[in-house]
């Protein structure tokens, strides 16, 4: 899957939030706040295709965590992103 285009990840006051671009109205009750590792992954995956395994590999390489922890985290994150409607298949 890929990131849904049109979102801008903005760092405001030390927090990362995903703001929809190009729309007239921005609804903050639906805005997505990201923790630092999610935000890092979101930037890192760019516009390309990725899977939970891709994310897990990135986490292992960057955060020096074991692969089981990374796979769990990646799977959970992917579910969150999918539920939030910020991915396209």
């Amino acid at each position: 899957m890929r990131k849904k285009p049109g979102f801008e990840l903005r760092c405001v006051g030390g927090e990362d939030i995903l703001v929809p671009g190009g729309v007239e109205n921005v609804d903050f009750s639906r805005i997505i706040a990201m923790n630092s590792s999610s935000a890092w992954l979101w930037r890192e995956v760019g516009d390309g295709d990725f899977t939970a395994a891709t994310l897990a590999q990135m986490l292992v390489a960057h955060y020096e965590i074991d692969s089981v922890t990374a796979e769990d985290a990646a799977a959970e994150l992917l579910t969150q992103w999918r539920d939030a409607g910020i991915l396209v298949p």
Partner: peptide, 15 residues
Amino acid sequence: MEVPNEVMFPEVRRL
């Protein structure tokens, strides 16, 4: 996923 005020309002101002 609630965005804190000090993060939201500077962004609100910009938008």
